[in-house]
């Protein structure tokens, strides 16, 4: 429960208010984690914030977190300079279930049967900074694609072109054979891509819904609409995973701040099968 000191060894501004930090432990061994899990990052003197790990488990190198400046703690994290020390607790929570990925051998009967990419297509749908928790999963899916083949679809929605994060990764994934599509809600001069809700890209994406599994992360309303559109297109609800976020504080299911119906999202989530949470996601007051 004590934060481990990590030093900022790299930083990259993704957009005006989103920064990716590369962190190396000051004294401890590097952390092992799974895509989709999160850490509690400490800005010393200010507090902690739950931030998803955005790197890939198998790539080695520094731990990566992509942080959006939305409050005092995340503001301090986004402004952390190279050499600064921040605290890291974790990793916590559940991961994206990817067949052939790092947790393929695990059996977690409570989480349903769908694992991303099995024999069919893997469809990754991200909204805004929701691409951050999915980035490690896409790296895993691309690595698996290289080993075993299979199709990977990465569909990204953003508010406007300047808010699209990981542009280099998107180009790299497309270059490596993934079907990558980006859409924005509001266009800007020079933008030649799609304009419209992220769900508008699902119909033309070209995946086989009967065999597809989907990983979805973004604002909750976006995930609801995306999940419904995927189901309408023929993807089974049990083959859709979503990542839910609430007020994560302790990270170990003690404090109850992240309660979501019968679930504590820091332990039972953030990644959950849609069929397990679909009803909860439409209940008022959650």
């Amino acid at each position: 429960m004590t934060p481990v000191p990590y030093r900022v060894v790299g930083r990259r501004d993704e957009t005006g208010d989103v920064t990716t930090l590369s962190l190396s432990p000051v004294t401890d061994d590097p952390m092992t984690f799974l895509p989709g899990q999160f850490n509690m990052l400490t800005a010393f003197g200010l507090g902690e914030a739950a931030i998803s790990v955005s790197g890939a488990p198998r790539r080695g190198g520094p731990l990566e977190h992509t942080v959006r400046d939305v409050g005092p703690v995340t503001h301090a994290l986004c402004r952390a300079r190279i050499g600064a020390v921040i605290g890291v607790r974790g990793p916590f929570g559940t991961d994206w279930r990817i067949e052939g990925g790092p947790t393929a051998v695990e059996s977690r009967s409570t989480l349903g049967s769908g694992t991303a990419g099995g024999p069919g297509d893997a469809v990754v749908v991200a909204g805004g900074i929701g691409l951050a928790p999915l980035r490690g999963a896409v790296h895993e899916l691309m690595a698996r694609r290289e080993r075993e083949g299979g199709r990977v679809f990465v569909i990204v929605g953003a508010r406007e072109p300047s808010q699209v994060i990981y542009r280099d990764d998107l180009e790299r994934w497309a270059g490596a054979g993934a079907e990558v599509a980006v859409t924005v809600d509001v266009s800007a001069p020079g933008w030649t891509g799609h304009v419209g809700l992220v769900t508008s890209l699902l119909g033309d994406a070209g995946f086989d819904p009967a065999e597809a599994t989907a990983l979805v992360c973004g604002p909750e309303i976006m995930m609801r609409f995306t999940a419904r559109a995927l189901i309408d297109s023929g993807v089974g609800s049990g083959r859709i995973q979503v990542s839910l976020e609430r007020n994560m504080q302790c990270g170990v299911a003690w404090c109850g701040h992240c309660q979501y119906g019968p679930l504590l999202l820091c332990r039972d989530g953030p990644v959950l099968p849609y069929d397990k949470v679909a009803r909860l996601m439409t209940q008022r007051g959650r």
């Binding site: 928790p133 973004g218 604002p219």
Partner: peptide, 18 residues
Amino acid sequence: QMTRVRLLDLYGAGGGAG
């Protein structure tokens, strides 16, 4: 329906910290 959802500005300030 898509236009209504876009009007919500989902990816704005309430879109999470990461």
